[in-house]
Structure formats: structure tokens, C-alpha cells
């Protein structure tokens, strides 16, 4: 008997009688102004949100340090200076200072955005780049995770789907919050009109 069969047999032997699944029909939190709530929450988790008015140039709303190596899937980011075709493997991403890309949606209650990690040929850049700049449409800022997963259910999903809330962080040294653990050390979210 394989371990698989042994485990399944053991489950059958010990499994209690069916408990029905609950209906998740309670009222979930919503906000009068999701954009404001998202910005506030993002700041609380260490990120930065900027609202870009219609007809304004994107470049006035993000900051990229001079001499930085910038890989961007957003064509309006004119500082981009790394050609994706020149990258041969995941390891080459280690020198990228800024990675810029559009995201599917964002969530007001926790300041996160959703990405399929498929803007570039190699996914390590989402986690190796020193800084992230992402762009999201106003109408894609949702209230809560229930709405977010309902949207995600409709999307085609690749190997990795990630909700990212702020830059990477740790409190492992005496509960002191340090921004920049392994992943990005800063995050700017540009909120644009549809």
C-alpha cells in the first residue's frame, strides 16, 4: 500500500461526519472613498500613492534617482534604460534598481495590488528590484479582498499571482520595523484615470 493510500485510508477512518460549508453572506467593509482609503493604508504599510490627474504627465508624479537602472513595462516612463531583450536569465535581474509595471487591481482595505508577475520574461525582478513603481486605474481600486478574489477568479492565472502590500519589511530585530528585507525597499503606486 502506498503512503498516499495509507493516508487516505487513515483520513477515512478518522474523518468526522460532514459539517456543511458556511454561507459567507455577511456585509463586508466598503469605503466612501476607496482611493483615499487605499492611499492612507498604503502609506501605513510603508508605500506611497500618487494620484495622476487626467492629461498630466506621468513623470511629474514618480521619483527615480539619477543613474538608476530602470526596467519598465510602462512605456510612458521615459527613464527606462534596460532593454528586456538583453536580459538572459533570472540572475541578471539582480542589478535592476527600478522595476515599473501596470497592475491588475488594488485593494483599499490593505493597500495591496495584484500582479500576475508576467510583465517581463523573468519573474525574479518583482522581488529582486530595489524599488517598484506600479500604475493602477482608479476604477480598479476595490474595497476588500472578497471583491479582489472574485475578480481574480475571472482572470487567466499564470504560475504566480501575488498580492503585494507595500515594500518588503521585517520586525525580526526587537520588533523594530525595518523597510527593505529581501524584496523591494520602496514602492510608489501611481493612480491614473481610466
Amino acid at each position: 500500500m502506498s503512503s498516499r493510500d495509507k493516508i487516505l485510508a487513515s483520513i477515512r477512518e478518522n474523518q468526522p461526519e460532514n459539517v456543511p460549508a458556511p454561507a459567507v453572506d455577511f456585509k463586508k467593509i466598503t469605503f466612501e472613498d476607496t482611493i483615499n482609503e487605499f492611499s492612507k493604508t498604503l502609506e501605513a504599510v510603508g508605500g506611497m500613492a500618487r494620484i495622476v490627474p487626467r492629461n498630466e504627465k506621468l513623470e511629474n508624479y514618480y521619483e527615480i534617482s539619477p543613474d538608476a537602472k530602470v526596467l519598465s513595462a510602462i512605456t510612458e516612463i521615459e527613464n527606462r534604460n534596460v532593454e528586456p531583450e538583453n536580459i538572459e536569465n533570472e540572475h541578471d535581474m539582480k542589478d535592476i534598481d527600478y522595476a515599473c509595471f501596470d497592475v491588475e487591481l488594488a485593494v483599499a482595505e490593505n493597500g495591496s495590488f495584484l500582479t500576475h508577475c508576467e510583465d517581463f520574461k523573468f519573474r525574479s525582478v518583482y522581488f529582486l528590484a530595489q524599488h517598484l513603481i506600479v500604475r493602477v486605474k482608479k476604477s480598479k481600486i476595490l474595497n476588500n479582498m472578497h471583491e479582489a478574489y472574485a475578480e481574480l477568479a475571472k482572470m487567466k492565472r499564470g504560475p504566480l499571482t501575488a498580492f503585494i502590500s507595500g515594500p518588503s519589511k521585517t520586525t525580526d530585530i526587537e520588533q523594530c520595523l525595518v523597510i527593505g528585507a529581501h524584496g523591494a525597499r520602496s514602492l510608489q503606486v501611481l493612480i491614473v484615470e481610466d
Binding site: V45, E109, P159, L160, T161, A162, F163, I164, S165, S168
Partner: peptide
């Protein structure tokens, strides 16, 4: 930890290319 969500909530749907 009193955060609204973990920084990374990563859903692995399959092996990467």
C-alpha cells in the same frame, strides 16, 4: 502582527517556465 495583510501573499499556480 497587526498588519492589514502580509506584504507578499503569493499564490503559486504551477511551475514557472
Amino acid at each position: 502582527t497587526g498588519q492589514p495583510i502580509t506584504t507578499y501573499t503569493s499564490q503559486f499556480n504551477g511551475p514557472r517556465e
